[in-house]
Design a protein around this nucleic acid. Sequence first.
RNA 1: GCCCAGGUGGCGUAAUUGGUAAACGCGCUACCUUGAGGUGGUAGUGCCGAAAGGCGUGGAGGUUCAAGUCCUCUCCUGGGCACCA
Length: 761
Amino acid sequence: MASEYDYKKIEKKWQDTWAASSAFKASDDSSKPKTYVLDMFPYPSGEGLHVGHPKGYIATDIYSRHMRMRGHNVLHPMGWDAFGLPAENFALKNKIHPRAAVEQNIANFKEQLAHIGFDYDWSREVNTTDPAFYKWTQWIFLQMFKKGLAYQSNEPINWCPSCMTGLANEDLDGDVCERCGTKVEKKSLPQWVLKITNYADRMLQDLDALQWPEYIKEAQRNWIGKSEGAELEFSISNSQFSIKVFTTRPDTLFGATYMVLAPEHPLVAQLQIENRAEVDSYVVASKAKTEIERGAAKDKTGVELKGIKAINPANKEEIPVFVADYVLWGYGTGAIMAVPAHDERDFEFAKKFNLPVREIELEDSKKIVEKVGGTWTVNYKLKDWVFSRQRYWGEPIPIIHCPKDGAVAVPEDQLPVLLPEVASYEPSGTGESPLATITEWVNTTCPTCGGPAKRETNTMPQWAGSSWYYLRFMDPHNTEALVDTKKEKYWAPVDVYVGGDHAVRHLIYARFWHKFLYDIGAVSTIEPFARLEFLGFILAEDGRKMSKRYGNVIDPTDVVVEHGADVFRLYEMFMGPFENTTAWNPASISGVGRFVERVWRVGTSDVLRTSDVLALDTLLEQTVKKVGDDIESFKFNTAVSQMMILLNAIEKEKMIGKGQWQKFLSILLPFAPHIASELAQVAGIDISAWPAVDTGKLVADTVVMGVQVNGKLRGSIELAPTASEKEAVAAAKNDPKIAKWLTGEPTKVVYVAGKILNLVV
RNA sequence: GCCCAGGUGGCGUAAUUGGUAAACGCGCUACCUUGAGGUGGUAGUGCCGAAAGGCGUGGAGGUUCAAGUCCUCUCCUGGGCACCA
């Protein structure tokens, strides 16, 4: 008779079995078709995992187990994205070395993951802070440097005064640091910048073919922000200067009644302006504001450059020139021709400064650009990637600064440039990295001339390692190359990539690096992630984000201890659509808890028959098909409910054929691998292969069809799905409930076999 | 302002893609079991109505034998971008 389901004992047993047999090791040399399933690897934070993290991991676990059952050679690895500010801040707060903090946190994460029964191939574990790993992060940087894609700049960048480091545009939330919420400042620092803009067009174009959620693609398109237009030149009267503008509307050129320069525009300083003092004070005031503050201003502001007139190249008209901060230096040419009749902002400004608004007949863009000698061009909102961080816990940038030879690459045979030990790794706040204080490390010799030189002391941003880690899983222990070409050709691309949150940053950086690696022949595909599944977060019961701050964090280990791993896995998949954000609901866990208990009771009672139970055939085959299809399309919630429907039917019949039970346990296995494995062993059946669908049994012998009279449902009839219209109408007339609505012979009959009968009278 | 998703019971949600709306689960109600509560089972559970029946997928129109699904307008929610020329 059925015994209590001892999930603690059984789950431990199977987890040990899988570990001992290296059951999930991926082979690099296989004739089987490959599937590479990847999770966005976690940041091993000090808070540990909460129940939101494993949601994606459960999905990839189900997907990868299912593909393995379908005969694929599956790569499903896990690793750690462990450089960056949070780890460093955690270490500072707890007064330990970041490396020690990372090790401790990783051990904690692994312990938590171990209880859930995942099928990771741990032999391929990677860690971005491992010198054997970041050697190749540095190597990629050097290749970019050699190709001119990594360059030094002194342009003012975003500086977070709290994190004491420069940031990229992608690291901002409006005008505050995405990490700590502090308002960023502009600061001029010597910076390494990566020329991501070179790839803007390809990143945009190649999005189309990707199997990604549309809104993620859209977010990337927005971020890249491509606009096509023309550059036109306006000469300035009585001077050698001219103003170049970018416009998407050259057809409105005749309506240009004034021009505007951004406050940062160099011409503002160069021109002979009569009201110099007024202009200068406006420029100073503008530069003190962030772009967001400028945008938030209710009123347009600006100052006319007295004594300066620009000449409209279309009609040779002289028009005034302003400096105004509604024009951004960072976009286009930092100068505009203002057409108040066709642009709301120009209109607003024109009204305030009493400038003419001229309605015009639009010209042909092509002709006018040609006529005034303009050039067609493309502009992007995307900016080059500010790549230097003035912090300790990151990959050292492998560059040596020589007074004679300038910036020189560290020779590749000297990689990795190890992150040195430092007495104090707190940020200095001066704009220099803590590494700058280690003189014996900083002072070195120039690889080119052998003279005295200094190492670059800035480190890479948190996003460096994650921009290529998926390649390393294909060949994690290679000391000669970041990935072996043959292995890369076999495994690439990532077939399914699963995660959340990084809609723009990580995905755009990784795509950029990947395309670069493609260009230098290091990888064979133009995109890294063929398919992307984005998950919805799990909120706390109170509807807020789970956070230590609110004290509402649920530890997956607690759930596993209380309910078991299989229940936890099933519950997270049953909560709702994978991409939905849903609140944690402990009451609902008991629903899947009952399901698992009932599966156990069925599997350990005497319901198994040697021959199939006919009454279950159709539903079983439908279930096998639906669960398989649903896993493929990441509709795990409906897969679980379908299995529940089947279990309800099995309980109703109080028996099931052994072969049928085998099919049921097989499709349950990816979701609830422990109990499925145990019950298969109990029954002495093999569930290692995904069952084939017996398509002949998919359609039931008889179906219940709705019957409508004049479009309103009046009853139902049961008959074969192949029944003729005549038979169906006869059956309907035979039913007194339906017949009472039939006042005469139907004037029209609509019959869709197996679905509906509609009688119009 | 522009661009993407979405609005279905008390709740999470489902709907064979134009064919019986609410499957599956939670919760709730009643009864049985359980010798005193977080057990298991049976039945019920969209709304109005005693019933017959009527109404019902944010709202208003429309197409159709038939609309949650398609079309037009509109309101609301979430997300992305935003003085980007």
